[in-house]
């Protein structure tokens, strides 16, 4: 148990360092898509929600799971789509248009 916990803490700390390294390089121009995109990724909590909704433990658990699945899915689908919509608008100056 405690060994597993320690490994998880390791993973958390290392991932945080990776996050700092990767995200510091994102330019100001892309901070809004970064935020909505990373937000969408955090909807990965959906995999936990799916298990809660699918185990059919008790009606209460299933309702909790259903709400969690709805919220997480909105987070994932809405987040990725709106990020894509924004990034689609970022264009370079067309060459030779002057």
């Amino acid at each position: 148990m405690s060994e597993g916990l320690l490994i998880s803490v390791y993973i958390f700390v290392l991932a945080a360092f990776v996050g700092f390294e990767v995200i510091t390089k994102v330019p100001q121009m892309l901070h809004t898509p970064l935020m909505s995109g990373s937000n969408a990724i955090s909807g990965i909590t959906l995999i936990g929600a799916v298990l809660v909704a699918g185990r059919l433990d008790s009606p209460l658990n299933t309702y909790i799971g259903l709400i969690a699945v709805i919220l997480a899915t909105i987070n994932v689908v809405g987040g990725f789509l709106v990020t894509d919509r924004m990034l689609h608008m970022f264009r370079k100056k067309p060459d030779g248009s002057k």
């Binding site: 998880s8 993973i11 945080a16 990776v18 996050g19 990373s38 995999i47």
Partner: peptide, 20 residues
Amino acid sequence: LRNNALITTGALVGASGLIL
């Protein structure tokens, strides 16, 4: 849940929000 995918992603997003 002892799920390392969630831990990794949570750390990434947490770091991103803190930097911003």
